[in-house]
């Protein structure tokens, strides 16, 4: 077995639908001639499916991955226009419901993206660079508080996905404390407090989604999202998940262009974007350090 299909990572990318149409065609041309290659691809697919079914049966949320068959076939521009048109047509009658039904908070969606189904809590949850929350009179700036809040939202959702009640409780408690100094955030704080209680896992995801969204709006969307992205990115860097950084590139650019971020965030975010946009092999340990610096600088 020689060629592209000898490269485990190319086959893994094919399995995840992370190859271009041209790359896919080239891989299939080789696979169509190779029993060994097809066997490896088939076994890997079968094993992945089996383990996902086990996880589903155990109640572990699946990672959001591209839907089978949803390979990009249109140019980005055509696809975006078409998708916007279709979405507009389909969603217009339902738009009135949007205010009542949370569609998944930013922190929750990021957490699903970096979580690994069936695995324990990602390393680093609740660890440096900011391990504790100092409470309402902690002297944090509103921006730094919002950044920490976003990071703890991600910690909370990752811990819930992993079924780690202790870590989820700690993250939820921190989120509630951070919100105590935010005007009008009592309702959201109460949801986090409820989730921090011993039976906190009983709090429905949709309640937490609503709390996340309210907390984000009241504490400052850009800063909360920066904190959430940084925290998710730290886990992604630990796992060397280049796809996470590729897929969220635009979000980072939009965040960087947003006013209202804590003053310490600017230089660290600029430095990080230079590294991410640089191309070439990724220095994962260096990237993780930069993310720690960014989170530390923005979170006060």
């Amino acid at each position: 077995m020689k060629g592209r299909i000898d490269d485990a990572e190319r086959l893994a990318a094919l399995l995840e639908g992370r190859v271009t149409d041209g790359e896919r065609a080239a891989l299939l041309a080789e696979l169509a001639r190779s029993d060994d290659g097809l066997e490896i691809l088939g076994d890997a697919a079968a094993v992945t499916r089996e383990l996902e079914e086990e996880d589903r049966a155990a109640g572990v949320l699946p990672i959001r991955a591209p839907r089978p068959g949803a390979r990009p076939r249109l140019s980005a521009r055509t696809g975006a226009l078409l998708a916007a048109g279709i979405a507009g047509l389909l969603l217009a009658p339902l738009a009135w419901r949007a205010g009542r039904i949370p569609q998944g908070s930013y922190a929750m969606n990021l957490s699903r993206r970096v979580a690994v189904a069936g695995k324990g809590l990602p390393p680093g949850v609740g660890s440096a660079p900011r391990t504790s929350v100092r409470g309402a009179d902690d002297g944090l700036s509103p921006g730094a508080r919002a950044v920490r809040l976003g990071a703890r939202q991600v910690d909370l959702h990752l811990a819930r996905i992993a079924g780690d009640a202790a870590a989820a409780g700690a993250a939820s408690r921190d989120a509630a404390r951070l919100l105590h100094a935010v005007a009008g955030a009592g309702t959201a704080a109460a949801v986090y407090e409820r989730a921090a209680a011993p039976a906190g896992e009983a709090v429905a995801d949709r309640d937490l989604e609503a709390a996340d969204a309210n907390a984000e709006r009241l504490a400052g969307t850009a800063a909360v999202r920066l904190g959430a992205w940084c925290e998710a990115a730290r886990f992604a860097a630990t796992r060397r998940d280049a796809a996470f950084f590729r897929d969220t590139r635009r979000e980072v650019a939009e965040l960087a262009a947003t006013r209202g971020l804590p003053s310490g965030a600017g230089p660290a975010l600029g430095d990080l974007r230079t590294v991410l946009d640089g191309g070439g092999p990724v220095d994962w340990a260096g990237l993780r350090t930069r993310l720690d610096v960014l989170l530390g600088a923005a979170g006060g």
Partner: peptide, 14 residues
């Protein structure tokens, strides 16, 4: 050798 073009779990599976 892992370049990060897929999730590490998928890479390890292959």
């Amino acid at each position: 050798k892992f370049r990060g073009e897929s999730a590490l779990t998928t890479y390890l599976t292959v």
